[in-house]
Nucleic acid binder design. Structure first.
Lengths: 248, 248
DNA sequence: TAGGATAGCTACTAATGAGTATGATCCATA
DNA sequence: TATGGATCATACTCATTAGTAGCTATCCTA
């Protein structure tokens, strides 16, 4: 890795460039306006830091990523990173929240029972899959309580639990309105979430599909299960041969 | 944590006790026999080290576990651990192999097409689930290439790929013999493995079921999918109302 | 145009933890 | 009973890295 210690002119760092690109910073107005823009500017830079962290965590893992790495990726020094974020742990936490927020939004939209619960669940799972395939997916999925302070760990656990409970509720509603096969909501929710979470592990290496395509493919898998095809004689025969007992 | 630096008499450490418990070390015989027992003794102690590592990784994560921790858990010093294992990375690798081996064995047993492929797949997935819920499950599932040297990373990847290909093959066979609904083998294998892998994440905190019970419950989930119950008028009505399109 | 807030850098501290050099002890064998 | 290998401990080295102290430059506001 070439240490391109390019001496950027002060006040014109990569971070600043990133902010300037998004801001119409040339507009001058009242002092308040300028002040507001400063705040926005800072917010944008902060997000750039978090995105860079997510990218690094994604590729090298949390513990193998130093804050110097993140700073280098932004062509900035380490204290600059600390200027936008209080510590490494918070960086992971922010990535986690950025990843999980779209899923929570999807749940909020799925609240009202216009459609059968199965359809609402499918929509939510679609968003879930896309979130996991996003840049923040890895952080979302791999953020472990072991790496975080008790407070943050508790916060993350409660967010995760919220998602879990949301899936279970939709499953129960689906069983009740008849749109979903009777099932154990807890185990089914675990299976669904697990299958989708796992996307984060192989998606980096195999980006031949978009997040939406993957999510759609998974929904199909969930719907078909492992049932034999009901429309052929061979399927019926094979299904009848089954013994219906797991190995001891 | 009380630093119970209990001064164990030399030659009578925890490791030795563990080995002695399993060995009938009192038997004296020919020098060759003693020599063979020494070898076995060493092997048993080595396995105790690996188990201790798995336990620690399981609870604190790989990077948050120091070799001093593992040594302390065995009431032994760090160089003793190094006496049985060449480095930390190898420790993780051994845990990984210990976890994945039963799954490979299950695949070997599922080779001959006595039963329909669906039944063979169910059996394999049952073993898979139990392995993931085992003490080595976490290591198996969370061992990342990022934490390992290229050589070990490649080795682990090939083992993982072997499992993946095995599942796909059984899926294809099942589709062919009619015992499994036509599906995309790749995506279906990802979903199945993901759901099962995820067990490792929640099993530690929720050991209300045995590994076998969990595996059985998951198989049921896979078989039912999200299909509506076909045996009620409500189910059919709900199924007809569905729009069959993922959100845009 | 002075002053204060903003934004950033160089150069450090301090702690942790992987891995090792060296030597002590025990036991089987000769 | 002397010796060599097996087993384990004390006490280090060395590299990494999270986080900080203290300084500088810029720019908006009064």
């Amino acid at each position: 890795m070439p240490t391109s210690r390019r001496k950027t002119a002060p006040g014109r760092t990569h971070l600043a460039a990133s902010a300037a690109a998004t801001l119409s910073a040339t507009v001058r107005g009242s002092p308040w306006r300028a002040s507001r823009e400063r705040v926005r500017d800072r917010q944008i830079k902060r997000e750039a830091v978090i995105r860079a962290a997510a990218h690094a965590f994604n590729h090298k893992g949390y513990h193998n990523t130093s804050l110097d790495d993140i700073a280098a990726a932004l062509e900035v020094s380490k204290p600059t990173v600390y200027y936008y974020v209080s510590n490494k742990e918070q960086l992971l936490f922010e990535c986690f929240v950025a990843g999980i927020e779209p899923i929570r939004a999807a749940f909020r939209n799925a609240r009202s029972p216009r459609a059968p619960a199965r359809e609402r669940l499918k929509t939510v799972l679609g968003h879930y899959g896309q979130a996991v395939a996003s840049e923040f997916g890895w952080c979302m999925v791999r953020a472990e309580d072991q790496d975080l302070s008790p407070a943050m760990s508790a916060h993350i656990k409660s967010l995760k639990s919220e998602i879990d409970q949301g899936i279970r509720r939709l499953l129960r509603e689906g069983v009740q309105d008849g749109s979903i096969h009777p099932c154990d909501p807890k185990m089914t929710a675990f299976a669904l979430a697990g299958a989708l979470n796992w996307i984060a592990h192989w998606y980096r290496e195999n980006q031949s599909m978009t997040g939406a395509e993957i999510a759609a493919a998974f929904i199909t898998v969930f719907e078909n299960g492992l049932n034999p095809r009901a429309d052929t004689a061979a399927g019926r025969r094979a299904a009848q041969r089954t013994t219906h007992g797991l190995e001891r």
